[in-house]
């Protein structure tokens, strides 16, 4: 029998939710465990096999001095490296600290902030090492994670989602929450993949799958301010959420932060 490829799952700064997508696979998880050797996956197993690993899934952002070395070690030990979820792909919700002074944040939360060893910014894996594939979403759809693993097993490229959440609303036949109900919705600028989960339940999208390809954020901001009466501060917060650190959203939030002659 041919050697089974080795799978490793790594955690950096995160909530464990993305690796949980694997455990959520249930019966498919057992099939995966037959096709792959689960070599390092601390959320699932205390069995540890030495590297190198054929496929590494990395969850979480790089946010401590230790991580800087750790991510290099993971890269060196991995043939194919996939960043899974918003934290690994963009820095995550904890990247909100990139817009503040981390010392101030630490002092607000901890009695003895001097004991913390943290970096000034929370950053995506790709900022430190080459990444072979990024899966977006907070969390990603578990079928996307499964697709990525299956694509790896068959040596097939995984097509990247370029459409917006709007397309998923159209497919589901949703009434547009933005145009019909005046609910601020980031759907037009957000990458598809969630199946338009929030708009389907009459909520505005808050962008947790990140910016789509070539998002027209300034046009959406004009919509929000001119038609929905949103303030500049509202616009800053709208783009400064789970993908605050993504280039397109960062640029848009900063545009509204500085306009007010702050």
């Amino acid at each position: 029998m041919a050697r089974r490829p080795k799978l490793a799952v790594w955690k950096f700064t995160s909530c464990d939710g993305c690796q949980l997508c694997l455990l959520d696979l249930e019966e498919e998880l057992l099939t995966l465990a037959e096709k792959l050797q689960i070599a390092y996956f601390m959320e699932a197993s205390r069995a540890v096999a030495r590297g190198p690993y054929d496929l590494s899934l990395v969850e979480g952002s790089v946010s401590t001095p230790e991580h800087l070395q750790q991510i290099q070690r993971v890269r060196r030990a991995s043939r194919f490296l996939v960043a899974i979820g918003t934290c690994a792909a963009s820095g995550g919700i904890q990247a909100l600290r990139n817009f503040a002074a981390v010392e101030d944040y630490a002092a607000q939360v901890y009695d003895r902030p001097e004991l913390l060893k943290v970096l000034a910014e929370s950053t995506p894996v790709s900022q430190h090492v080459p990444v072979d594939l990024e899966l977006h979403g907070c969390p990603p759809n578990k079928h996307q994670v499964l697709d990525a693993v299956v694509a790896f097993l068959h040596g097939r490229r995984l097509p990247q989602e370029s459409a917006s959440v709007c397309l998923e609303c159209k497919r589901r036949g949703n009434i547009c929450v933005l145009t019909a109900h005046g609910v601020p919705c980031l759907g037009p600028v957000t990458r598809a993949g969630c199946g338009a989960l929030c708009p389907t339940y009459h909520r505005g999208c808050y962008g947790c799958f990140g910016p789509k390809e070539t998002p027209n954020t300034s046009s959406l901001s004009r919509w929000f301010s001119q038609r929905l009466g949103q303030s500049e501060a509202d616009l800053v917060r709208a783009f400064r959420q789970f993908y605050a650190n993504a280039k397109a959203f960062k640029k848009e939030s900063e545009a509204h932060e500085y306009i007010k002659g702050g």
Binding site: T13, S14, C15, G17, I93, A100, A106, V118, C138
Partner: peptide, 29 residues
């Protein structure tokens, strides 16, 4: 590693808190 939820929640609208805090733990959001 710390993620500073208590700090970045300051200055947000109260309606945003549930979505943000849901990301503290992926097992029990």
């Amino acid at each position: 590693p710390p993620r500073f939820f208590e700090a970045f929640l300051r200055g947000r609208r109260f309606t945003e808190a549930p979505d943000l805090t849901a990301r503290i733990c992926g097992i029990c959001p």
